[in-house]
């Protein structure tokens, strides 16, 4: 029988990682997708800020214009209920005329990465907190908790990198946190609507396999 790694140890470790950024809290944002993982990071960061009288938490959400309406609705509700400083970054394209998901790499670069980088620069962010986890995808297995990024210069931090999908849900259901209703309809990982379907057995099996195959390339481009 494997020795269990209690979730409370992981939560404590994540809080320690996040605490290191409290001294520059105004230049920190959570890259919040409206999904479960970044939602957990946002909840923990928001809690730490509140404990130190440093709120509100800043959340940076890239809205490609192709998000599920359920995700957008949750974003609005939580921004209000959690008192977030929400910044929504949008691509500089006419989404109605854009050939969404035709060239997956180009699509992610133009609709996600470009507006994200622009927002990081405009907000003068030093640290961007993500909900990235190692167990999501083989390309993420060797990621480090912190990665220095250029253009613009900022630190990308992954405070729940060592959490599993089970840990995330254990935390959400244990804390009674709100989450997007799509997860109860068979979705396990939420991206843009054209590239996301209900999942099979793997967490990201509902993501477009073509795009999944390009995750390394997207990471090189600055995608998470």
């Amino acid at each position: 029988m494997s020795v269990p790694d209690p979730l409370e140890h992981k939560v404590a470790r994540t809080r320690r990682l996040l605490s290191a950024f409290l001294d520059r809290a105004r230049r920190v944002a959570v890259a919040w997708t409206g999904g479960k993982d970044s939602g957990v990071v946002l909840w923990l960061w928001r809690g730490l800020l509140a404990e130190h009288g440093l709120g509100p938490a800043r959340a940076l959400c890239v809205d490609t214009g192709l998000k599920f309406p359920e995700v957008v609705a949750l974003r609005g509700r939580l921004a209000r209920d959690w008192g977030l400083d929400l910044v929504v970054a949008r691509p500089d394209v006419d989404i109605a005329a854009y050939p969404a998901a035709e060239d997956k790499v180009a699509c992610c670069r133009e609709l996600k990465i470009a507006p994200l980088k622009r927002a990081v620069a405009d907000l003068g962010l030093e640290v961007l907190l993500t909900g990235l986890r190692r167990d999501e995808h083989p390309s993420r297995a060797k990621r480090e908790f912190q990665e220095q990024r250029r253009d613009p210069d900022h630190l990308l931090a992954h405070p729940i990198l060592d959490w599993t999908e089970m840990d995330v849900w254990a935390f959400i259901t244990g804390q009674g946190l709100p989450y997007c209703g799509l997860y109860d309809q068979g979705y396990r990982s939420l991206g843009c609507a054209p590239c996301t379907a209900r999942s099979g057995q793997g967490e990201r099996s509902g993501r477009d396999p073509d795009k999944e195959g390009h995750l390394e390339a997207l990471r090189d481009l600055g995608y998470f």
Partner: peptide, 9 residues
């Protein structure tokens, strides 16, 4: 199952 993700694993 609740939550729904449990159906996968």
């Amino acid at each position: 199952v609740y939550p729904g993700f449990l159906a996968g694993p």
